[in-house]
Each structure stands twice: as structure tokens, then as C-alpha cells.
């Protein structure tokens, strides 16, 4: 898409420079043809395949109900994230999202106050956390490791620091790691 845009940009700019620098250069093409070729044919050739591709790609990213993957709740509030793991009892972590690698996970995103947006740039697109609604985002991390996540909808004073960490565990270690993390958070609180 970037390359395509660059080519189109260069095309239009070249045409502009040519018609200025070489008067009469484009006059062999009739005015009507300029309009039809540039205004209708060019966009049609570029846009229609692009749209088709984008629609198919968008469809693939949807959290379709068929596979019923693991669920994690992400709850935003000013200015921190809390994650709950309904598949693992009442486990809860703050500021760190734990998830297994290699399998899709559905994040159920909601908010307790204003609108936030849940975004892990390296894993998926973003989805807003809207008070009163629950949005679902399907993500998958193929490699274990640490990723950065952040709020990407302006949410007030400390919007910039509303970040969170994502720790992706090997699938077999996930339950234990989650329990450990939740326990250590719990002990810190006391």
C-alpha cells in the first residue's frame, strides 16, 4: 500500500511538472480523456482491488464465535489497566497482561470511567474501551516474550502514562505463571 501510494504520488507530481515545464505536452490527449482516464479509470483500477483486499483482510481479523478461544477481560480506568481471567477463577492482575503464546485470545475490553483504547502495537489493531459497552478484540502472539501496550484514546491528565506490559508465556507454563503473578501482586498489596 505504501509503495502503491508512492507510485501514484510520483505519477501525479510528474504530470504536474511536465504540463508546466513542457507546454503543449499533454495537449495531444483530449480534455475529456484526461478526466476519464485520471478521474475515473485510475481510481477504479486502484481502489476496487484495494477495497476487496481490505474487506477480506478485515474479515480474517474478526473475533468470530466459532473457535471460542480463551478470554481475558481488560478494564480501563483513569489511568491504569486491570486484567481479569474468567477462565482462571477470580484471578486479576494490574498493569500486566499475561497470555499464552501460539493461540488466539479474546480480549473483552471495557471501561469504568471515560473512553480508553486498548492497543498492543506489535500484536494487533486497537479497540476502544467504551463505558457501558464491552468490545471484543482477538489477538494472538506467536512468540513468548514481553510486549508493550498503551491507551491510545485521549483519556485525560495522565493519558501518556497509561501503559501496560504484555507477558506472553509458553502455553504449558501459562496457568502457573499467571497464578504466580497474581499471588505476588496480592502479597504486595498487603
Amino acid at each position: 500500500m505504501l509503495a502503491g501510494s508512492a507510485i501514484l504520488f510520483l505519477l501525479v507530481m510528474t504530470l504536474f511538472v511536465l504540463v508546466i515545464r513542457r507546454p503543449g505536452w499533454g495537449s495531444s490527449v483530449s480534455p475529456e480523456r484526461w478526466l476519464v482516464l485520471g478521474g475515473l479509470v485510475l481510481p477504479a483500477v486502484v481502489l476496487l482491488p484495494l477495497i476487496a483486499y481490505a474487506m477480506i483482510a478485515g474479515e480474517r481479523l474478526l473475533p468470530l464465535p466459532g473457535q471460542a478461544p480463551a478470554r481475558i477481560e481488560a478494564i480501563g480506568r483513569q489511568w491504569a489497566w486491570t486484567f481479569r481471567y474468567p477462565d482462571h477463577g477470580a484471578t486479576e492482575t494490574k498493569g500486566v497482561l499475561h497470555m499464552p503464546a501460539g493461540a488466539p485470545v479474546d480480549i473483552l475490553v471495557s471501561s469504568q470511567d471515560v473512553i480508553h483504547a486498548f492497543w498492543i502495537p506489535r500484536l494487533a489493531g486497537k479497540i476502544d474501551a467504551v463505558p457501558g459497552h464491552v468490545n471484543r478484540l482477538r489477538i494472538q502472539a506467536d512468540q513468548p516474550g514481553r510486549y508493550a501496550g498503551q491507551c491510545s484514546e485521549f483519556c485525560g491528565l495522565d493519558h501518556a502514562s497509561m501503559r501496560f506490559d504484555v507477558v506472553v508465556h509458553r502455553p504449558e507454563e501459562f496457568s502457573a505463571a499467571l497464578a504466580r503473578a497474581a499471588a505476588s501482586e496480592g502479597s504486595q498489596k498487603k
Binding site: V12, L15, F16, V19, I20, G24, W25, G26, S27, V29, P31, W34, L35, L37, G38, G39
Partner: peptide
């Protein structure tokens, strides 16, 4: 855009 280009051309 192309009407302007054609006008110049």
C-alpha cells in the same frame, strides 16, 4: 485534480 492538470496541459 485531473481537470486542473488538463487545463494546464
Amino acid at each position: 485534480i485531473f481537470a486542473w492538470l488538463a487545463t494546464l496541459a
